[in-house]
Design a protein around this nucleic acid. Structure first.
Lengths: 204, 204, 204, 204
DNA sequence: GATGAATGAGTGTTCATTCAT
DNA sequence: TATGAATGAACACTCATTCAT
């Protein structure tokens, strides 16, 4: 097997299983049975079960941070009308984050593991609430400054905008198989709320 | 020990631990250590671990169904202005459901267990999305019929109204200890969104 | 419940279950579930599980001893020709011992429990081999003395006569349900061997 | 430890204990205490307790089937006088089956487990009654065809021949320790019956 | 007579992990 | 790189039995 291949396979399978059943409900046996390798072999690649999780977490945080950075850059450029009211970045947020196979799987995992671990709770809060909301606030304050959006409380507006998206994620993307059908349903329902949000404010 | 006391204690402690760490991460030993009884004693009261969960689920569903019924009745009476735009029932929904110690704990548990079990996923969807949203839609359609609320899409409106509440629940009430501080924060943030929601529509 | 009734019920059910599954595979729970009484109640009637067995054993030994005594008496009277060549006693041995519900059940139990317990092994040997064979030897030596049976080795003859009966018991009466069909099959096959035994020796 | 050794040791010890006390009366702890290994190690070699039994059963059936095949072949060759009246095969049946340490132990086990399990009942019937009797019938019908044995009912004759052997097995070889003394006693008593059987029919 | 409540010892089994090869 | 062999600790659960009422 090509070098690094086995390690990647372990990570892939682990994330898949973790996201399905939760970290502690997945055994080393389960993972190795699917790779497939012997259980002792796994310890050649990882110190222990926890390390698998940590590597996944690190990759997730890198990927998520990169996306957020890109989104920030995108809106730093003077906002153009039309789809520009956050439309482009929202789509990236949908497709490359909430519905991206890797990010979606890790977010599900994070969501399930919040219960036991305080630091994971904070991580989840960061990537599911803090960062997206902060980003959205920036967008709305900018739109208001530019007079595109009526003066209002940007923070409340950000929640009003993001909460339906988050609820859609929770309802359609956070458990069960991630089918095209579910993704489509999420896109439709979240899109409907967003459209309404802008229409009501006379922006579309 | 007073009659029936031990059984209730087992249920209490079990729910507490389940809600903290998730069903499968809690061992019979953990429960018995806290009651406190010997492990074999637990099996005098329950056939197995699952039965503890099922009894809790049944009680939750009864309690939740009773609340929903009460809420429906309340809005069946002609809606009066002011706090009447769903304000009374929303408060009941907050205090006696989302923040009620028993219901809150079971909702957390349900939220964590969605991963593994299809039927629990449906149960969670019922009590966290389907029923509250259906209720809210009824409220808004009624308000529109009465001309109190401007004609609009009641379904979208229900999501606009409920999503921030749900997000508040997820963020402040669904993991970690359920402190007064967190409850207050939830009340404040959700209240802020609700107030805005009605203000924007000229109802407050 | 009439006095002594519960105790008898416990003994009945216990023997039934013991004979089906073996002593140690039957739990106090199993027995009490069928009586039906609470488990603690059983200890009002018996000191422990073993005592149930011992009472059954005692009753069995009394009943078996009484039958053997009766059989001995029957052949002490001058043997008459025809069915008299042990025919009458053999039938009693079949119907009131090997196929009698109580004796059959206890013999099955004894048979299963031989493995672990030396004294039970002796008991089984007594009632399944030693006594029946000793009895049969007496019958044959008497028949030979009277010139009814040709001079021969009575001990060998006893085995020739009894072994097919024993094998029939083992094959048809020692496990599974004791149906009329099985009893009939046993009677037929054992009878065939007995008939042949006497025919070959010119006695029928 | 040499390769494959531990697994074999587990099988050996298990069979020994099973044959002594019965399957369910032997605990994993008992087996591991004697091998000796830790309990978790046993599960490296076998999926569960039942699998140990099944492997033993498979080996027994293979061995028994091989012996039966060999016996059939032996009598297919034209029967020669003297020891040939089944003498050779009967000895093989004694030494390599009824008294062979492995087969004897498994037959004891099978005998004890008849109570609970219908399929084991059938297995026992096969190997203790059906096959040996069928074989013996063939022998006698052949001997009669060749005029060596007087015309008679071969089926009855087979029982007459086999029943004392079976009874000897039950009495001397099916419980307690399998000592040389007991084996000798079995050989003597079964031999006596066989000798008589042929003498009475003028064949020895 | 009968039971509710409790228990210590034991059941088969799974787990993440180690280590020599 | 990979594995065969092993393990200690934990798991959910069952058992016969006790004892106050």
């Amino acid at each position: 097997m090509a070098i690094g291949r086995t390690r990647e396979k372990i990570l892939d399978i682990s994330l898949e299983l973790f996201a399905q059943r939760g970290y502690s409900a997945v055994s080393i046996r389960d993972i190795c049975g699917r790779v497939p390798i012997k259980e002792s072999t796994l310890y050649y690649y990882f110190q222990n079960k926890r390390e698998i999780f940590l590597v996944l977490q690190q990759r997730f945080e890198e990927k998520a941070a990169a996306l957020m950075r890109r989104m920030e850059e995108e809106i730093a450029a003077p906002l153009q009308g039309g789809a520009g009211f956050g439309g482009g970045v929202t789509q990236a947020f949908f497709e490359e984050y909430l519905m991206d196979p890797f990010c979606n799987a890790f977010l599900r995992l994070l969501r399930m593991e919040q219960g036991g671990d305080e630091t994971l709770r904070e991580t989840y809060d960061q990537w599911m609430f803090e960062r997206p909301l902060t980003f959205q606030k920036k967008v709305f304050w900018a739109l208001m400054e530019q007079g595109i959006l009526q003066q209002a409380d940007g923070d409340v507006l950000a929640v009003q905008y993001y909460a339906p998206i988050f609820m859609g994620f929770e309802r359609y993307l956070s458990s069960g198989e991630l089918t095209e059908e579910k993704k489509e349903r999420f896109r439709r329902e979240a899109g409907r709320q967003i459209t309404w949000f802008f229409q009501e404010r006379g922006l579309i």
